[in-house]
Amino acid sequence: MNKKFDKFKQWLSLNYSDGLLDLNPPASDDEIEELTRTIGVDLPEDFISVLKIHNGQKGESAWLFDSQEFLSTKRIIEEFNIWKNLLDKELQGKVSNPDDGVKNDWWNKKWIPITSDGCGDHYCLDLSPSPTGTKGQVITLWYESSEREIVSQSFSQWFEEYLSELNTGNLVYSKEYNSIVHKDEL
């Protein structure tokens, strides 16, 4: 993951230097331990390796992943707890319309948010897929939509596909939106 993340930082330095400056220092072992203890599940090694490169972003500049904030360990815990509270109070028995391979929960305690748009939409690591899914697959979780889509089979695949979209120019930094967006959204 180091080489892949270096390519991401290179793209940021050429296309959006403020985004590069918005990256946090590496997550400490204590921060990662607090995260895994709070969420109650072990994270995939490819995701942990990225946290050890940069613990998300500060959030002082535009969001780095397709109009979504790259969450730090602290922000993952915050978003996880928001969803956990919603599950306990409002989401009991509510079901989603998932892709094959994803459980039909509205939210599952083993769906770990790794990005956020600030309005309840996330890319999540699915650490409890249905029997036809893959543990560690990346799924969408849009608060107001019942769809739960599989985006990639793993975090490293998702990140590599994102890098490809950046390097082919399909994703660009937009001053107008102050975010990295698909070029067809401009």
Rank of each mutant, 00 (worst) to 15 (best):
Y143A: 10
N85R: 15
E165F: 11
F65P: 00
L163A: 07
L127C: 01
N81A: 10
S61E: 14
L86W: 15
C119F: 15
E78V: 11
S72Q: 09
D117P: 12
G93T: 04
I76N: 05
L141H: 09
I76E: 05
S152R: 07
D126V: 01
I77S: 07
K58I: 10
V172T: 13
L127N: 00
K52A: 05
Q153M: 12
S156N: 13
G56F: 08
D66N: 11
D105V: 01
N170K: 13
G133F: 04
L163R: 09
L71T: 07
W106H: 10
W107D: 01
E144C: 09
G101I: 03
F65K: 00
S154M: 09
Y143F: 14
P131D: 12
W107P: 00
C124D: 02
R75Y: 10
D105P: 01
I82H: 14
K52Q: 15
T73H: 05
N55Q: 05
K94C: 05
L141R: 04
P98N: 01
E160T: 15
H54E: 05
D66F: 11
R148F: 01
P129F: 05
N108Y: 07
L64W: 04
E79C: 12
Q92H: 08
S146Y: 12
K89I: 13
L86T: 10
W158I: 03
K74V: 12
S154H: 09
K84R: 15
W111E: 03
G120C: 09
V151L: 02
N104A: 13
T168N: 13
I77M: 10
T132W: 01
I114C: 11
N81G: 09
I112L: 05
D88V: 13
N108I: 03
F65R: 00
Q157N: 14
L51F: 10
W63A: 12
E160W: 06
F80C: 08
W158G: 02
G133Y: 04
F70C: 05
E90W: 13
Y162P: 03
K110H: 11
L166H: 04
G59L: 03
T132G: 02
E160Y: 09
S145V: 00
H122S: 00
L166F: 04
S130H: 02
Q57M: 06
S72R: 05
I53F: 11
E147I: 02
Q137H: 02
